[in-house]
């Protein structure tokens, strides 16, 4: 099971729609081993593709640091499928980084976005129900992914 508040659900869908025509992606935080998403971190798609995504590594480290400073961990990733159903592609399955994570896929194939969640363990995909959690008012954070190409700041060290 994956619990998403209406606020986080809306953040995920908005980021996916905003990424069109390319796939969009982001990270989800919560308690380690938990089933409730407590924070959403929209990220840049470093692959800049309609068929592939790569969570921008700098966005990931910033999200990870922010989550840990709030006593949370990254517990999952979301990404959009622009023209296919909300089911993990062979690439999603092959590259799933962590069997403990929740893998949320947003299909934008139909007019109404479809949000589904999966566990992917050693190549085996299991869908889990997505249920609506109560809004706590503490979800999410200002979008801080930075401008595209913002990596140049890293060269100054």
């Amino acid at each position: 099971m994956l619990e998403l508040s209406a606020t986080i659900h809306a953040q995920i869908v908005a980021h996916c729609l905003g990424g069109l025509p390319e796939e969009a992606c982001g990270l989800l935080s919560g308690q380690l081993g938990g089933e409730t998403v407590e924070g959403c971190y929209p990220a840049r798609n470093a692959a800049a593709s309609a068929k592939l995504y790569t969570v921008d590594p700098t966005d990931f480290v910033r999200a990870d640091r922010h989550a840990q400073s709030h006593g949370l961990e990254i517990i999952g990733v979301f990404h959009s499928h622009t023209h296919t159903d909300a089911y993990p592609s062979p690439t999603d399955i092959a590259q799933a980084p962590d069997p403990a994570w929740h893998y949320v896929i947003v299909s934008l194939r139909q007019a109404e976005p479809s949000v589904r969640s999966y566990r992917i363990v050693e190549g085996t995909v299991t869908e889990e129900p997505v249920v609506q959690a109560a809004d706590t008012g503490a979800e999410g954070r200002p979008q801080a992914a930075g401008p595209p190409g913002g990596r140049s700041g890293g060269a100054g060290r």
Binding site: V77, S89, T91, Q95, P97, G154
Partner: peptide, 24 residues
């Protein structure tokens, strides 16, 4: 984007390891 494994570190720095997160 720095000097890879040759990147110099200083006291108080943090080295983080994270999985590459990608799919299709």
């Amino acid at each position: 984007y720095l000097d890879r494994l040759d990147t110099k570190v200083n006291d108080g720095d943090t080295v983080s390891i994270l999985p590459a997160v990608a799919g299709g």
